[in-house]
Design a protein around this nucleic acid. Structure first.
Length: 285
DNA sequence: AGCTACTCCTGGTAGC
DNA sequence: TGCTACCAGGAGTAGC
């Protein structure tokens, strides 16, 4: 699903086409996508100019200038499960599964597409509340082994649900958590408060390494839905060590990968490289 | 504080 | 071939 690498890829590929453009007209065909009030959304962003595009956690952010009095200062896009952004002509056939169209001043539109309708496009003022309680960016210098060690020790949680929490660390999702934990031989149900400094150092490094490699390959496309804004699949799925590999041999030790459920999420481990913590039985799914 | 269950959604696929 | 049931899950929320 779109996690940090897919969101970063989406932002990078859309950015050169939209920065500097004025939003002339807005169409919405599923009001929930824009928070329920399509008219209010259109009013807030119409006439503004997109002056910068960046990413925070799993949000694509467009900074806005100008527009009417009280106009929005940011557009926040969350892809959730199947959201996509593409830049295509305003006229002619609308792209399949489109939910929001921001028609630009060059005859093209920034289209938000979403099969499952979980994604969101928000108009926000100068200080979006969405950013108030996010953890650090895993690729920033602020996130390192020392920080992770202290943060893990301060909580008493299973590692995986904690790493998925955006308020703890911003940008990880199901796939890259499974991949990162496997890379360092830690079990998803291991108790965060018992993490050693050495384990935290290796985990922080693995998270950075996995995310950077996935960005390099424009994310992962393991199903029919994730495509870059240019319509290409990512290729990091070819590098998966555990995700989606149930029953296949671990690339490190050959033991068959196991899948089970943690917090309603499909979870993949190598039972040999990632021994379960004492006292926690792991049932097969 | 931490855990689980439930909700929102629908294309793809497994099973019959 | 065609039908049905189930699966995928990010994140918000409720309840214990």
């Amino acid at each position: 699903m779109p996690e940090l690498p897919e969101v970063e890829t989406t932002m990078r590929l859309v950015r050169p086409h939209v920065v500097g453009r004025v939003i002339q007209r807005v169409e919405t065909c599923w009001p929930r996508t824009v928070g329920g009030d399509a008219e209010a959304f259109a009013r807030a962003v119409r006439g503004t100019r997109m002056v910068r595009a960046w990413r925070r956690a799993k949000w694509v952010v467009f900074d806005l200038e100008g527009g009417a009095k009280g106009a929005a200062r940011h557009i926040l896009v969350h892809l959730r499960m199947t959201g996509r952004l593409v830049v295509e002509p305003s006229k002619g056939a609308a792209p399949q599964w489109w939910k929001v169209a921001l028609h630009l001043d060059d005859g093209r539109a920034l289209w938000f597409l979403d099969v499952r309708k979980f994604g969101r496009v928000h108009a926000r003022g100068p200080r979006p509340a969405e950013f108030d309680e996010l953890g650090p960016e895993p690729l920033s210098d602020e996130f390192d082994g020392a920080w992770l060690h202290a943060a893990l020790r301060a909580r008493r949680r299973a590692l995986k649900p904690l790493l998925l929490e955006q308020a703890f660390l911003a940008g990880l999702g199901n796939i890259y958590v499974d991949e990162s934990l496997h890379a360092v031989g830690l079990h998803p149900l291991a108790d965060s408060s018992r993490t050693t400094r050495e384990q935290a150092e290796r985990l922080a490094a693995a998270i950075k390494r996995v995310l950077a490699a996935a960005i390099e390959r424009e994310g992962s496309s393991f199903d029919a839905f994730y495509r870059t804004p240019e319509g290409n699949p990512g290729s990091y799925q070819d590098q998966f060590q555990v995700y989606g590999r149930e029953g296949e041999p671990c690339r490190s030790c050959g033991a068959p990968i196991r899948k089970f459920v943690v917090g309603q999420r499909g979870t993949h481990v190598c039972p040999r490289c990632q021994p379960p913590p004492r006292g926690r039985s792991v049932k097969k799914n």
